[in-house]
Write a protein that binds this DNA or RNA. Structure first.
Lengths: 169, 169
DNA sequence: CCCAGATGCTTTAGGCTTCAAGGATCGAGG
DNA sequence: CCTCGATCCTTGAAGCCTAAAGCATCTGGG
């Protein structure tokens, strides 16, 4: 609904320094983003230097680990919230590295089912343990109380976002 | 504090092993990541559909906007916390679109100084206003009280992460 | 049976990102 | 002046990611 074509009020007021009260939300968002990026960058860095792997690879293995019997590429795509084409590429690279294997689904020839190999399971176990301890290290400075409060508030934030998203997906 | 080790009923808590008590940190991290990704994905989507641009382009313009006189590519690189090669590419694309212009620094011939063009300033003003209202919309479901509490707790989380990073950078 | 739409995967083009290597320039010490 | 190391930027290779198009297959209504 681009009904604001003839009302550049928003653009003007945004430049005016103190438009409405939207500054609080913006500051909160920037801090949320900074926090997440700080942690995520460090995790990516350690995955690379200590295991020569990447976060997307790790995430895909994690999905397979927690779902016995393997997953179809489509299921992985939905769980990781990325596009199908993306998963095709990740699966191909992980297959070349021998951590994962594709096998056709007997009941539906369109489907490719992905499973961890023994090596994939072993590698992921090491990576997963390290990952968990890294997170604990980075967030260990929070008290149990703060951690619980933050978890609860983020739950409300998530609910707010999903409400704001109504109609989009 | 749920330690229902033998009841992996929830999909979220489907973490098999039971080493220490690091699960709380991990759950907090996953929720933080989900929140951020949810918002960020929506912002990227709207920037693309409504302005035919991307978040990195927007971020770069924002840096230029808030710093009169232009910035060198190195300054932009540091402020955006990305590599120099990345900024080179972004600047080149923005220059081709006419939103930004490169000009040599008279006092140091290694340096490229980047400035917004008139068109870049105009486009960014529209994008910025929309961006701010999107964030306000997505986080508007939180009360002022919750928002303030979340902001404070994220500040502590950031401090915890920086402490955990000591020695890395 | 047939076919039309839905579904699952792959491919392609383009952008973002990093790391590593390379070229140009600067500044300081000899 | 000259050279050495630091700084600034660019380039190239590789991976991640998306949107869109395309192919194969499945499913349900006639």
């Amino acid at each position: 609904m681009p009904d604001d074509v003839f009302h550049p009020v928003d653009a003007e007021t945004a430049l005016a320094g103190t438009p409405p009260g939207h500054k609080d939300e913006l500051r909160l968002w920037l801090r949320l983003l900074t926090c997440t990026n700080l942690i995520e960058a460090e995790i990516r860095r350690r995955l690379r230097t200590e295991f020569d792997t990447t976060l997307p690879r790790f995430d895909l293995l994690a999905q397979l680990e927690r779902a016995q019997g393997g997953l179809t590429l489509g299921e992985i795509s939905r769980r990781m919230m990325v596009t199908g084409g993306n998963v095709t590429g990740l699966a191909t690279r992980l297959e070349e590295e021998g951590l994962v294997e594709r096998r056709p689904d007997p009941s539906d020839r369109r489907v490719q089912r992905l499973r961890l190999t023994a090596r994939g399971r072993r590698d992921f176990a090491r990576q997963s343990a390290a990952h968990e301890s890294w997170i604990a290290e980075l967030l260990g400075g929070l008290s149990d109380r703060d951690r619980a409060a933050l978890h609860a508030l983020l739950g409300r934030a998530k609910a707010s976002v999903r409400t704001g998203l109504e109609g989009s997906p």
